[in-house]
């Protein structure tokens, strides 16, 4: 099967998955969560006004019709308006995507590159003091709560030393840069621990393979073996690990965006959850599931490209 027909066939899987996700969302929000009108109308809601609003939101229509609306919005991306802010949800998502990406993309890219380099480095010194020290540091970094890094970074680096902005965001390049520097650093500190441990394991799995011994016996340098042979063969788990994280980058970083007042998708989602803004939560759930499927397909295709042994079926 060629790559195009394989991709097409995998993309068709999006349809049943979206239908299933829509059903779960519909059941959770429409049947389990109950009537949202009291929350939307606030402390002065009257019974008649609640009934009017229920009618206006279409909540008094048959369940099947309401389910069809959720499915339609999943395929057309017309998610309607936020119950809380009355804004077009698609516009909200468009506006939030860029601030999220200005934080998450560089942070993810830098932390991945750093983690791969460190893991190759410690694999080179496997079992030695450097390896043990790095693993210890990684475990230590992972053991501290993300909130502690955020609070400390904000207080010490931004407030006390004045090296960064405490919080905020300015749109447009390069104005956003000072505001995302500290969150990027914190993101890197947070992810470098688990990433290094994962990549180190992957590299060590490869390093004991026969082809590495062969390369060594041929007299190749350790650097060439690591970067040219081991890294290439370790690419499949690395690609899986990296690509599957990308949909979550698009969705933003909830805590970092909230603490640093970055108006991204993470803060939109958090705000929607706090305000019981079901249409926004529905939209974010549907989009994240679609993004997850698309990146799964992309991951499979990448396997084929980086490893000729992989066959698409």
């Amino acid at each position: 099967m060629n790559i195009y027909s394989y991709t097409f066939r995998r993309l068709l899987y999006v349809i049943p998955v979206v239908l299933g996700v829509s059903l779960i969302i519909f059941v959770l929000f429409n049947l389990v969560a109950g009537d949202p009108t009291a929350i939307l109308l606030g402390k002065h809601a009257s019974a008649s006004q609640m009934a009017e609003l229920r009618h206006e939101l279409g909540l008094d229509r048959p369940w099947l019709a309401q389910y069809f609306d959720v499915v339609r919005s999943a395929f057309t991306f017309d998610f309607g308006r936020s119950w809380s802010t009355k804004q077009e949800i698609f516009e909200m998502i468009k506006a939030g995507a860029i601030p999220s990406l200005t934080l998450s993309f560089p942070a993810f890219f830098l932390s991945t590159v750093l983690a791969i380099i460190v893991s190759l480095f410690v694999s080179f010194y496997r079992g030695g003091v450097v390896d043990r020290l790095v693993v210890f540091v990684c475990v230590a970094l992972m053991s501290i709560s993300s909130l502690a890094y955020i609070l400390f970074g904000q207080w010490f680096l931004a407030y006390y030393l004045g090296l960064f902005e405490i919080s905020g965001y300015e749109s447009g390049f390069p104005y956003f840069i000072p505001y995302v520097l500290l969150p990027i650093i914190i993101w890197m500190v947070l992810s470098v621990g688990p990433d290094v441990r994962f990549y180190r394991t992957v590299v060590l799995d490869e390093i004991y393979q026969d082809y590495v011994r062969t390369a060594r016996s041929k007299g190749l340098s350790e650097r060439v073996i690591l970067f040219k042979h081991v890294l290439k063969n370790a690419m499949i788990p690395i690609i899986t690990y990296v690509l599957i994280k990308i949909p979550f980058l698009i969705l933003g970083a909830l805590l970092l965006e909230s603490f640093f007042s970055i108006p991204g998708l993470g803060s939109i989602t958090l705000n929607a959850i706090n305000g019981s803004d079901f249409p926004v939560i529905k939209a974010m759930t549907i989009l994240s599931s679609i993004a997850y499927i698309l990146f799964s397909v992309f991951t499979d295709v990448m396997y084929c490209l980086v490893d000729p042994r992989v066959r698409l079926k």
Partner: peptide, 17 residues
């Protein structure tokens, strides 16, 4: 400025922002 979390709010105030 919309700052939801209390720490950045407090630090920004102390910095005169």
């Amino acid at each position: 400025n919309i700052i939801i979390e209390s720490q950045p709010r407090w630090l920004n105030f102390q910095k005169g922002k």
